[in-house]
Amino acid sequence: MCKLLGAILILLGCSYWGWKISSLYRKRTELFRFLQNGLTMLEAEINYTATPLPLALERVGRKSNRFCQALFLQAAHILQAQKTVSAGEAWQTGIAALAAEVPLSKEESEILQLFGYSLGGSDKEEQLKNIALTKKQLFIVQKKAEEEQGKKQKLCQYLSFCLGAVLVLLLI
């Protein structure tokens, strides 16, 4: 009886672990999709109402999903609280806050960093170009992440279940 209970616990534990890892792939595709949405909102704030960045980033952050919120709100907070910090540096801390929630590859965080460098430092037209370029790059990253999700999500779940099963067999 004890053996059966233990075996079930091991199987459940391993499956949960696998599910946890695979959900990261889902989160990543979601993140890139929402980031593009966020940038579209920022585009409207810049193009239509010419809202200064501290307020614009906060507004976008409030409307975004959880992960994007970390990025936009953190950057807005830094800009509001510290006068001498540049918009690029504030955006950088936003990226750090984001990376703490969702794993980002080097290439991905570079795209976001590059966006930060010219944030706020030029006229409307240039800002819009920068946003459009970053959105395009994020779209490509999103497609890659979706592919990865398709391949690896299932794999993770199967592997972790199999690992559990092997452990159970070994222990029996």
Binding site: I46, T51, L53, A90, S122
Partner: peptide
């Protein structure tokens, strides 16, 4: 400019 040159063109 509140870090936002575009807002003050």
């Amino acid at each position: 400019s509140q870090h936002s040159l575009y807002a003050w063109e």
